[in-house]
Simulated assay, not measured.
Amino acid sequence: HFFFTIWAATQTYADFASQISLMLGKKKLARKDFDNAANFLTDMVLNGIVANSGK
């Protein structure tokens, strides 16, 4: 499930960039948008691992 989560999140940006642009109110995603997404997803995944490491 970990792999599926990473794959789904990153593939969304590859396949649906135009829809994401629309939702962000932009004509086109910039490099910074992809960097922000990568930072968010990295934090989400790593914090999820750390938060569950005691189980």
Rank of each mutant, 00 (worst) to 15 (best):
H1S: 15
H1W: 02
F2Q: 06
F2V: 09
F3D: 10
F3Q: 12
F3A: 15
F4K: 12
F4D: 10
T5P: 00
T5S: 14
T5Y: 14
A8N: 13
T10H: 01
T12A: 13
T12N: 11
T12P: 00
T12Y: 01
Y13V: 12
A14L: 12
F16H: 10
A17C: 05
A17E: 03
S18P: 01
S18A: 13
Q19F: 04
Q19S: 15
Q19W: 02
I20V: 13
S21R: 04
L22F: 10
L24P: 02
L24H: 12
L24A: 13
G25A: 02
G25K: 02
K26N: 04
K26A: 09
K28L: 05
K28Q: 14
L29S: 01
L29Y: 03
L29A: 11
R31D: 02
K32T: 14
F34V: 14
D35S: 06
D35Q: 11
D35G: 00
D35N: 04
N36S: 06
A37V: 05
N39Q: 09
N39D: 13
N39K: 11
N39V: 07
N39W: 04
F40Q: 04
F40K: 07
T42Y: 03
T42P: 02
T42W: 06
T42D: 02
T42N: 05
T42M: 05
T42V: 10
D43K: 06
M44S: 07
M44H: 07
L46I: 12
L46Q: 12
L46H: 08
N47S: 10
G48D: 00
V50Y: 08
V50L: 02
A51L: 06
N52M: 12
N52I: 10
S53Y: 03
S53R: 12
G54L: 06
K55G: 14
